[in-house]
Design a protein around this nucleic acid. Structure first.
Lengths: 131, 131
DNA sequence: CAGGATCCTATTGGATACTG
DNA sequence: CAGTATCCAATAGGATCCTG
């Protein structure tokens, strides 16, 4: 895993932050990770419906990068029609604190950015909150 | 603050995550925020030295975006030579859990990405850890 | 010191059409 | 269903030089 997508690993304090940030940067990565954390396992089409506004190309792209980085697991079921399920890896689940913190911040300050939609708390039955 | 840099505020759960992520996305934003959290107040040149590898243009750019988004405060002292100090706003300080989580994750997994430099824990005397 | 102004390249993101 | 394959526009990122 872990493409050489990181520029500086000089041991400086900011280095760790930079590395972690680079993993969740990408227009849809944070959201994808959030939904997988929240719901555990989702198919491609399920993710796409939940995210909304993402094209297949972009979703595929982001999923591939997350997979290469070792954050998500991609399971292909040899069926027809094809079924592909995505879930977080152990490494990905370790991002839980990050994702929760991001979600909390966003929920607390969404009013700054828009007319504020429904807060939409994570579902109780989901996989979130385990860590 | 808060440029209309966010595409979807439909109230979906991922929305908040997406908004928060977009604020710290940018090659140097996470690092800048981290150092400001760690050390409280830093001048332009101090930030630049700490980050290393960033050009003035990019640092200026990222600082401006963070300022526009209301995460950092920019204080210009009318002196010569000029002195400009950056610090986190209250809103920016609320990102502390996010930054700490990112740092923790990075520290725990930096070995995945490189030969692993010195871990470089946050200094005790810094501003970090307040929240 | 802390930038602003330019110019240029690379990467990201997106629309659309096609496929096993 | 879950993608590929193209093509294209926008943005991010960077090198360099100049300035109050």
């Amino acid at each position: 895993m872990a493409k050489a997508r990181f520029s500086r690993f000089d041991g400086s304090p900011g280095c760790a932050v930079e590395a972690a940030v680079s993993l969740i940067c990408g227009k849809w990565k944070g959201v994808v990770l959030w939904y997988l954390l929240d719901e555990g396992t989702l198919r491609f089409s399920e993710l796409r419906r939940r995210i909304g506004g993402v094209t297949q190309r972009m979703l595929t792209n982001q999923l591939r990068e997350l997979e290469v980085d070792g954050l998500i697991h991609r399971e292909v079921h040899a069926e027809v029609p094809p079924r592909v399920e995505y879930s977080l890896t152990a490494l990905g689940r370790e991002l839980t604190p990050v994702l929760m913190a991001l979600k909390n911040w966003g929920d607390a300050h969404l009013d700054l950015f828009g007319p504020s939609g429904t807060p939409a708390e994570p579902r109780e039955g989901g996989a979130a909150g385990q860590a």
